[in-house]
Amino acid sequence: MADQLTTNVNGHDRAITSAPETPLLYVLRNELRLSGPRYGCGLAQCGACAVLVDGAEVRSCITPIAATAGKKVTTLEGLPLLWAQSKGATADGGTLHPVQQAWIDEQVPQCGYCQSGMMIAAAELLATNPSPSVAQIKDAYTNKPPSPHLCRCGTYAAIIRAVQRASMTMKS
């Protein structure tokens, strides 16, 4: 039996019982019952499973849970807390992350399957570049390794508008 592994997920330290080589995606979904990250390809080719690890986007489908030991994992469900913490607040008062609010206001999801990953990518982008141009948004969603974030329903135009809207809210 390997040493017990502890990962901080959405603000809580969680003792993980899954085998250490299990990809983070399966641990989040099946052990911790978080349904934000979803299986799209299992090969780091689509972005549906994206989460933040210490603030940087990773593809949970190819990241062994052992690689996240002692780190902070944020899923879609943890974005409100991440936002509260960035404002210096400790409690999660139920306010959505501005990215989520913008996604609702701009009616981004069609089927919505890819959108958890899309919002994670937006949260990371806006944390590093608070005022991205359209070209920078397109670049972040297309050219950043390991792969483009793909949306088969074609919501790219709505995503660009929502990222810009979230950027405005986060700066004000």
Binding site: S35, V108, P109
Partner: peptide, 21 residues
Amino acid sequence: NPMPGIPDKVTGRTQWTCDVT
């Protein structure tokens, strides 16, 4: 009229087919 399911999809409350256990 907005599409009713959007807020749940954005906050992670939707139960997708893949979530059935």
